[in-house]
Design a binder for these strands. Structure first.
Lengths: 339, 339
DNA sequence: CTCGGCCGTGCAAGCGCTTGCGTGAACGCC
DNA sequence: GGCGTTCACGCAAGCGCTTGCACGGCCGAG
């Protein structure tokens, strides 16, 4: 901090010739203040370039007006979308966000959650919470509402339904005649965790497969390091049940998978069909354009944020918090064909 | 906050049978404390799940141990890289980051900067600062060190040299026989701002062009909305000086540009050559693989953070803070060819 | 003209922590 | 064995703000 001396509320009060409490009141728009007094204070505030200290305010008022958002991996563009949705909604209600990048590393995530605890966030939004259910306990105990994206399955009354897209995609693949498929997922190879969402997807695959009377393999390939992608793919293609359709589990996964396909000199869709979860802005621009399972992350961010606001006692947009999210959908573009 | 009652330092002190100040001291590892006292306190801390209040700490100590990072646009993967570099460096010195997404919107950025002021960040890292020089003043006045990525030009003694890559790329293009080129940049069409970095690139282009005795056009196309890309490109190609090489100004720009190229049914590199600034993970996986100007954002993040630490009086890794960043480089892959 | 009520403001006690100063006990020294 | 040091800790005064309460002045009602 060196010699930084900040203007305080007392300075403003002195400049305006009033009591500090009055300044506080205009700051918070709380009690009635005479217009001219208010004007004097506001002028002083501006003139002195006063910025109230968040620390002092929240210490005194026991409110921080912040919510933490823990993203598993900021390098995933869908999370950025999600974030903006949440941010818009929360800012409209005067809350600000502490964004943190989990970097797919449980240690980092734990550290960040501890920081949230110290910061006294009033609410928490987490995605892929399955990796940290234990870490979330302190929040629940402290009465801090946690809004997890992960647990929103239709059978739990949550607004999320992510099965329609999967189902449509795999019906399409099996109808085309594919038998063996491989799903590449972004997970640390040393500690693979199967999210509920992933399980739900696998169920959708099984269902589509059964509908078509197919008995092929569904390989699930956890990829931590992009460099692993090509070797894993090569091994798969050399083995029994070589997949003819490759599915990228998310935005992050897609580029490495395409890189591997390229490295092996495979043509899309002639040699392999490709489907990607998440309609990254690259997907449509790829050659050929990628068939994707698209999902509206922005809306999900808004919905989670609204639900949080409701739990915080802020009468947020009730409709947004209660509404079911639009289901995901399959977009066929050009990367899927008869095997 | 509802009925959330947090454990305080006083609670811990009572449980451990000591004075609050002693607890504070073990918390900060400051003064000498007898091992058994320390142990008792630590046990109580754990048992009570005590998490010190950041607000109270920073109010009392006049230190927040935080630095703000303002990114122009989180949806740009290179910024994520940058962020991780900075985060690693700062966390090693006990600072934590407040990340904020400027969303390419000056209003949002101003709001976030004000928040930083209230949060009493001890330092600030900004990129593309050219859009907000005015907004940065309060920080400078308050004695808060600001580390702007933007201003690091070699002629200012900063560590950044982003000319080598541009130069190599355009020498390559002009040598191949290209005459007219177009650079697509991500800017709000209504308020285009020419960054120093952009100017520096344009200079490199001019230099390469002169070296090759070419007198073709260099179109600069600001794109705010991805949907504008195709029409702008179509118009350009229909006009005089139709470009034969298209350059995407950054990671964000690349996908829309490729989408537009695709929409117009142009073959790469037969009809147009493509060069992208920023080696996105998609670039190598594209078909054909994209020639790019690659830059190490992670290292830039580390360097800026180190410089900030030095200015904060933390004897950070002096080498890292002083070192010149590796220059960017041109990687020819397959999207550039004879026009 | 008196009085209750409200309005605008001041007063002061904290919020949970840090930190300079003070003090008793244990220690080493001559 | 007395005395100065050091050690380990207690004490209390804040940090910059909020907020319940008090209080004087003005109003309208009786």
């Amino acid at each position: 901090m060196a010699e930084t001396h900040h203007v305080t509320l007392a300075d403003v009060a002195r400049a305006a010739g009033v009591n500090p409490s009055t300044v506080s009141r205009v700051l918070n728009g709380r009690a009635p203040v005479r217009p001219d007094t208010r004007a004097r204070i506001e002028a002083a505030t501006r003139r002195l370039r006063y910025h109230p200290s968040r620390s002092a305010r929240s210490l005194a008022s026991a409110r921080t007006w912040t919510v933490g958002v823990l993203l598993p991996d900021l390098a995933n563009l869908m999370h950025t979308e999600f974030l903006r949705g949440a941010q818009r909604t929360l800012q409209a209600r005067n809350f600000s966000l502490f964004i943190c990048d989990g970097q797919l590393d449980p240690a980092v995530q734990e550290a960040e959650l501890t920081r949230f605890l110290e910061l006294r966030v009033e609410g928490l939004i987490v995605t892929r919470s399955f990796t940290l259910t234990g870490l979330l306990e302190p929040f629940v105990e402290a009465g801090i509402p946690v809004e997890p994206a992960e647990l929103f399955e239709p059978d739990e009354g949550g607004p999320r339904d992510r099965r329609a897209g999967s189902l449509a995609a795999f019906r399409h693949l099996y109808a085309l005649g594919h038998r063996d498929v491989a799903v590449f997922v972004h997970e640390r190879a040393d500690a693979p965790v199967r999210s509920r969402e992933m399980r739900s997807r696998l169920e959708s695959i099984a269902r589509a497969r059964d509908e078509h009377g197919v008995r092929g393999a569904v390989h699930v390939v956890p990829i931590g390091d992009p460099a692993d992608c090509a070797p894993r793919l090569r091994a798969l293609l050399a083995g029994d049940d070589a997949p003819t359709a490759l599915i990228a589990g998310n935005d992050w996964m897609t580029a490495p998978l395409l890189g591997a396909v390229q490295e092996l000199g495979l043509a899309i869709p002639e040699d392999v069909s490709i489907v990607a979860y998440g309609d990254s802005r690259w997907a449509a621009a790829y050659r050929p354009p990628l068939s994707v399972i698209r999902y509206d992350y922005h809306e999900e961010g808004e919905t989670l944020a609204s639900r949080l606001l409701v739990r915080l006692g802020e009468a947020a947009d009730a409709a947004a918090s209660a509404r079911g999210l639009v289901p995901d959908e399959f977009l066929e573009r050009g990367s899927t064909a008869v095997p």
